[in-house]
Design a protein around this nucleic acid. Structure first.
Lengths: 219, 219
DNA sequence: CTTGCGTGTTAGACAAGACTAATATTTGTA
DNA sequence: TACAAATATTAGTCTTGTCTAACACGCAAG
């Protein structure tokens, strides 16, 4: 009923519309590395199928049906990532590429089994929330480390969608989700931060700090 | 390089050519439920790519390259089936449909990890041999239960490729791989067999006996 | 208020992978 | 051996998902 390709468009739209509620043809084109005319015609077809709201020269929106489908694909992706890390011993930097493929598998029992074996996890290995079986997803509401001030103590909750390189960077520096980070100082020139956590002290560029999602440590 | 579709043709050819070393266009057509002209044109394209030996109006053969590719896909399929049964708790009748999809995943580390976690299994949950990472596969050389004589004692080694229904039939009767089966008698009229194993005594139709692969019990 | 550039759309081509209808070859059998 | 049935092939169409080239819209800067 819904093709592999259409699933990829839904995922892209879901990610892009997360902020403003809408996305442009150009956004989708860049996100998927597919030329604009192709995206345009696909959007029309997906509008026919009731996944997308399309009007000429206006931004794209997902319908409720489209949002639900997208969330269910993201559910499969994130459950898979969690399974690969927790049950198969992969590193969090290795799992995205595999999950991109497994998310298209059609087999409810397969993903139910994963969910069960993982004891119904709420987040994936990067801290992103896993939508429930009805496509409901709780929004994260974390702060970027780069938006915090010197002296603050925060908990590292999630990594914003990013490259494997960042994850390997964090591996090397032994920074893991849940760590308490203290912002020792911020360099005014380039916004790089000197931070400490566990028994480490590191300097993170603003590019890194933009990708680390945190919440204030209580007390 | 090699499409999902082409992989399915390779698998079908491998299965069909297992016996005689060749298969007809008609065989492949039936096996994949794809019309003959489609198979015909696909065979020409796969011959161009060096997977198949094609000559007009002659039976199809796989090249060495084609055989190796096919064996590697079957390796992924059977490793996956073993993983699903051993590590995720699925029944042997549930795993074929899932493995049919996972076998197309492109990720060497994923299948290496499965292999490692399973401690390098030699056979899948149905007793079929798993090709090694170079595409080498040992042939089974088992006998059909239906070819055995009354009074023989045999070990149940594998199930010939078949339907889920047969596997559920065996589940209900608690017959598992490795069981020692004694052939109590054979009904001359319909070749049905009365067999005993563990503390059970059952009657199997010739259709069932055709699918049960066994080897003689030594001593 | 016009013009230029970025974005959006239309038109037309192409490859993969499927189909049907028609034709050709091979094979089994009278 | 000849003919009918089964099998194989050719030709042409369709859908999906991609592209490029060309044209249309719309907004920001002068």
């Amino acid at each position: 009923m819904i093709s592999h390709t259409e699933e990829n468009y839904l995922k892209a739209l879901f990610a892009l519309t997360h902020a403003k509620g809408e996305a442009t043809v150009n956004d989708v084109s860049k996100q998927l590395d597919i030329k604009m005319p192709t995206v345009n015609s696909m959007m029309k077809r997906m509008a026919e199928k009731g996944f997308v709201l399309y009007e000429s020269y206006k931004p794209l929106k997902l319908t409720e049906k489209g949002k639900k489908e997208a969330a269910l694909i993201i559910r499969k992706h994130r459950l898979t990532e969690m399974y690969l890390v927790e049950k198969m011993g992969f590193g969090w930097e290795e799992v995205h590429h595999i999950a991109e493929q497994i998310e298209h598998i059609q087999s409810p029992i397969f993903f139910e089994k994963m969910d069960e074996l993982l004891a119904y996890p709420k987040v994936d290995p990067h801290g992103s929330p896993i939508p429930d079986a009805n496509g409901k997803i709780v929004s994260e509401n974390y702060t970027k480390l780069s938006d915090c001030k010197a002296g603050e103590r925060v908990i590292f909750m999630a990594v914003a969608p990013s490259s494997e390189e960042l994850l390997r960077f964090l591996n090397v520096r032994e920074l893991i989700l849940g760590s308490v980070i203290t912002i020792e100082s911020i360099e005014p020139f380039d916004e790089s931060m000197t931070v400490s956590y566990v028994d480490r002290m590191e300097v993170f560029s603003s590019k890194v700090c933009d990708k680390l999602l945190v919440q204030p440590k209580r007390r």
